[in-house]
Amino acid sequence: MLQEETLMQFEEFENKLAALLRSAGPETVAELTDTVVAWWNGERVVYAQAETFGAGALTGRFIFDACQWSAWKDWLADWLSDPVLSVRHDLPREP
C-alpha cells in the first residue's frame, strides 16, 4: 500500500513537471538538483545527470525510482512552488 501511495505521488509530480516543461518551450530543462535535470522530449519527461563542474555537460540518464522519490519528494514538492528552468542546446535527440 505504501508503495502505491509513493508511486501515485511521483506520478502527480511528473504530471505537473511535464505540464510545466511543455508550456516552457523547446530545449527547456528543469534543474531539479545540482546534478539532475529533466526535459520534455515531445512524448515524456526525460531525466539526466549533469556534471557539477565545468560546463555542466550531461553525463547520462538518471533513473528516477521509488527509492530516490522517497528521499527527494519533499525537496521536489518545494521545487515545484519555485521551479528553476533554463535552456540547453545539448539535449540528446531521441529516436
Rank of each mutant, 00 (worst) to 15 (best):
39 W>T: 08
74 D>N: 13
42 G>Y: 03
4 E>Q: 13
67 C>V: 12
57 A>T: 01
59 T>H: 01
66 A>V: 15
87 V>Q: 07
25 G>Y: 04
65 D>H: 04
20 L>M: 14
48 A>I: 01
5 E>N: 04
81 S>Q: 13
6 T>I: 14
32 L>C: 06
29 V>A: 11
88 R>S: 07
15 N>P: 01
90 D>N: 10
37 V>P: 09
8 M>A: 15
10 F>R: 12
86 S>H: 10
87 V>P: 02
58 L>A: 01
9 Q>H: 05
15 N>M: 11
74 D>S: 14
94 E>R: 11
43 E>R: 09
4 E>C: 06
63 I>R: 06
80 L>F: 04
15 N>R: 05
39 W>H: 12
62 F>Y: 13
27 E>C: 09
71 A>F: 04
81 S>F: 07
60 G>Y: 08
77 A>W: 08
66 A>I: 11
34 D>K: 08
46 V>G: 00
82 D>P: 15
2 L>C: 02
62 F>H: 07
73 K>A: 08
37 V>Q: 12
26 P>G: 03
35 T>S: 15
29 V>N: 08
89 H>V: 13
84 V>C: 11
46 V>Q: 11
9 Q>R: 14
92 P>W: 12
3 Q>R: 05
81 S>T: 15
11 E>H: 09
48 A>H: 07
28 T>D: 05
33 T>I: 13
95 P>T: 12
5 E>Y: 06
25 G>N: 05
39 W>E: 14
92 P>T: 06
4 E>F: 03
94 E>A: 11
91 L>E: 09
91 L>G: 14
53 F>C: 03
14 E>V: 08
44 R>C: 15
13 F>G: 08
41 N>C: 10
68 Q>R: 14
5 E>K: 03
26 P>T: 01
4 E>R: 11
63 I>S: 15
72 W>N: 09
27 E>T: 02
92 P>I: 11
82 D>L: 15
59 T>M: 05
12 E>H: 06
21 L>K: 03
2 L>K: 08
64 F>E: 14
79 W>R: 08
88 R>F: 00
71 A>P: 00
57 A>V: 00
72 W>A: 02
48 A>N: 10
49 Q>G: 07
88 R>P: 00
83 P>F: 04
49 Q>S: 13
28 T>K: 11
51 E>D: 12
78 D>T: 14
68 Q>L: 15
10 F>C: 04
56 G>Y: 06
59 T>E: 03
9 Q>P: 01
29 V>I: 13
24 A>R: 02
43 E>Q: 10
53 F>D: 10
25 G>W: 02
90 D>C: 09
59 T>W: 00
17 L>R: 04
89 H>R: 10
62 F>W: 06
84 V>Y: 08
93 R>D: 11
35 T>Y: 03
57 A>M: 12
7 L>R: 01
94 E>Y: 14
33 T>C: 04
73 K>R: 15
94 E>W: 15
74 D>A: 15
60 G>H: 02
1 M>Q: 06
80 L>P: 00
72 W>F: 11
34 D>N: 13
5 E>A: 04
84 V>T: 07
61 R>N: 07
87 V>E: 07
60 G>C: 05
86 S>W: 04
61 R>V: 02
80 L>A: 06
23 S>M: 01
81 S>Y: 05
3 Q>M: 12
83 P>A: 09
88 R>G: 10
38 A>W: 01
37 V>F: 06
7 L>E: 04
60 G>F: 03
64 F>L: 15
66 A>R: 10
